[in-house]
Structure formats: C-alpha cells, structure tokens
C-alpha cells in the first residue's frame, strides 16, 4: 500500500502548512512546529522535508515578492495540493482504523509491564 506515503515528520509539516494556510513559509512553519509540538526543528530537516513533499506533489509552492526584512530575498509560500489532502486524509483514516482495531485489553498497562 504505497499509495500515499507520508512519514511522521512529513505529516507534521503538512498539518502545519494547513494550519498556517496563506502564511506557510520556511520560518513560520518552523516556528509553528516548535511552539505547538515543543520540539526543535532544524532548518535543514525542515527544508529537505519540504522539498521531498514538493517532489511527491503533496505541496505546491510559489515565490512571493521580495521583502525588505529578508535583504531582498523572496519568501517561498507552500500550499497543500489536492493530492496532499488525500494523502493526509488517507493517513488519518488508516490511523483511526488501526486505533479502532486495537482490543481494549492490549492497552491495559498492567499486562504490558507484567
């Protein structure tokens, strides 16, 4: 079932892009993930994840006009594509289905630690 492949970090990135909607670019995505999930994200990891998602066509990007606070560099904004949305949904559904299939007993901590 390699139909929609989405790694954990990739999923987080996709979700953040969705949350930020019109304002999803490198710095903002990083900040959002860091505040929401309380974890460190390196620029390198984020950027390569973004490139990877673009290659899979889950994200689409466009350059904004140059902004003065970035020394004339453009911002690259990301948007979720239709395929990206499907992939997110698919991931969410498979997860839910799997959650539902877990018997209650299995989550009883006592048994696990015996």
């Amino acid at each position: 079932m390699k139909k929609y492949q989405l790694g954990e970090f990739e999923e987080v990135v996709m979700l953040t892009v969705g949350i930020l909607y019109e304002n999803a670019y490198g710095v903002s995505i990083k900040k959002e993930i860091e505040t929401r999930l309380n974890r460190k994200v390196s620029v390198g990891a984020l950027q390569s994840a973004l490139k990877r998602l673009e290659d899979k066509e889950y994200l689409r990007s466009h350059d904004s006009d140059a902004t003065p606070e970035r020394a004339g560099r453009p911002k690259r904004f990301y948007k979720i594509t239709a395929l990206g949305k499907k992939a997110m949904q698919y991931t969410k559904e498979t997860r839910n289905a799997m959650w539902d299939s877990i018997p209650d007993v299995a989550l009883d901590v006592k048994f696990v630690t015996n």
């Binding site: 670019y25 490198g26 990083k30 620029v43 950027q47 020394a71 560099r73 453009p74 690259r76």
Partner: peptide
Amino acid sequence: EFTEDIEGDLLERFE
C-alpha cells in the same frame, strides 16, 4: 533552485 528562498529564511532568522 532553493538557494534564494532558503537564504531568505536564514537571513530573516538571523535578523
């Protein structure tokens, strides 16, 4: 292909 915008990110964070 990425130089421009990543550099932009870097500079923004630097500022």
